[in-house]
Deep mutational scan, measured.
Amino acid sequence: MFKRLMMVALLVIAPLSAATAADQTNPYKLMDEAAQKTFDRLKNEQPQIRANPDYLRTIVDQELLPYVQVKYAGALVLGQYYKSATPAQREAYFAAFREYLKQAYGQALAMYHGQTYQIAPEQPLGDKTIVPIRVTIIDPNGRPPVRLDFQWRKNSQTGNWQAYDMIAEGVSMITTKQNEWGTLLRTKGIDGLTAQLKSISQQKITLEEKK
């Protein structure tokens, strides 16, 4: 169930391209415009997507990853294993993690069937560096609404905000991946996880038929 919630949630996290980005210092504006741009692209490019579902990787690479804190999220997933990894191991892992996100997020976007969304009203940021933004996803086919909290983090150097995690039903996506990959990290280390991520990233994206 959580895996499905995570995939549905990713439908609204794909941010804007650099040329049309919203105010990078306001995570609420980023979330709002990102959702609108993403849904528009999914709707307008269905012919290309249906002809070649792996085209979704391109959308992810162009529109999402430049505005997601990939390395920060990847380091959180590694936890204690990050500090013990060599620079070469980290570089290989982050490259594999990025390719994994292209496949995983692309597969999530393949679930698009006309969903709509509501974003919580903007709250004062103050001096906060981590801000959760509640998004409610509404399914046109009558499924119950899904309420999610996207975690946005302020870059201490640039002042810009980027998304790095999502919490559904009190469970963090980062925590879920830590639990899912924990045994592999304990037995085969970061190299074993890197190899698995490379394998997963090679899987073809498949479209979910409308139910």
Rank of each mutant, 00 (worst) to 15 (best):
Y93E: 04
V68W: 00
K204M: 11
I174N: 13
R134H: 04
T206P: 14
K102Y: 15
D54W: 04
Q118N: 11
Q48G: 12
L11F: 10
L16Y: 10
A75W: 00
R50L: 11
G182C: 11
F39G: 02
L193E: 05
G192S: 12
D191Q: 09
A51C: 12
G189S: 09
A75I: 00
V68T: 08
S156I: 03
Q202N: 06
L193Q: 05
L16F: 13
A92D: 12
A18N: 13
R41Y: 02
Y105K: 01
F39T: 03
I133M: 09
I200T: 13
F150H: 08
L16H: 05
F39Y: 02
A88Q: 12
P27E: 02
F97C: 07
R134V: 02
P87V: 08
Y112D: 04
Q24S: 13
P87Q: 13
E99N: 14
S199W: 13
P132E: 03
N155G: 02
V77Q: 15
P53N: 15
L193D: 01
Y28P: 03
N52A: 10
P47Q: 13
S201I: 09
R186V: 01
L76I: 13
N155C: 01
V131L: 12
Q202Y: 15
L185Y: 05
I59H: 01
M6R: 01
Q103E: 10
T38R: 00
D127W: 15
Y164L: 04
M7L: 08
T116D: 15
L5R: 00
I167Q: 15
T183A: 09
A73G: 15
K83V: 07
N155R: 01
D54A: 09
I190R: 03
I133S: 07
E169Q: 05
A195H: 07
K43E: 07
T187E: 06
L125D: 06
E209C: 09
K83Y: 02
A75H: 00
Y105I: 01
Q62W: 03
T194L: 06
R153S: 01
A85H: 04
L125S: 08
N26I: 08
A92N: 08
Y100Q: 15
Q36E: 07
K43C: 06
T183M: 11
P87D: 11
L109E: 12
K29G: 10
T116P: 15
E122Y: 13
K37A: 09
E180P: 01
M6L: 10
E63P: 00
K211V: 07
A168M: 12
G142L: 10
M111N: 04
Y100H: 12
I130D: 00
D32Y: 06
G142K: 14
A88H: 09
T25P: 09
N44A: 13
G159H: 09
K71C: 00
I190A: 06
R57S: 11
M1I: 05
E180G: 04
R90G: 04
Q48H: 07
A35W: 13
A88V: 11
Q80C: 04
K29N: 14
S172R: 02
K177W: 10
L207V: 12
E33L: 04
R143S: 04
W181F: 14
E33R: 05
I133D: 01
V12E: 01
N52K: 11
Q62Y: 06
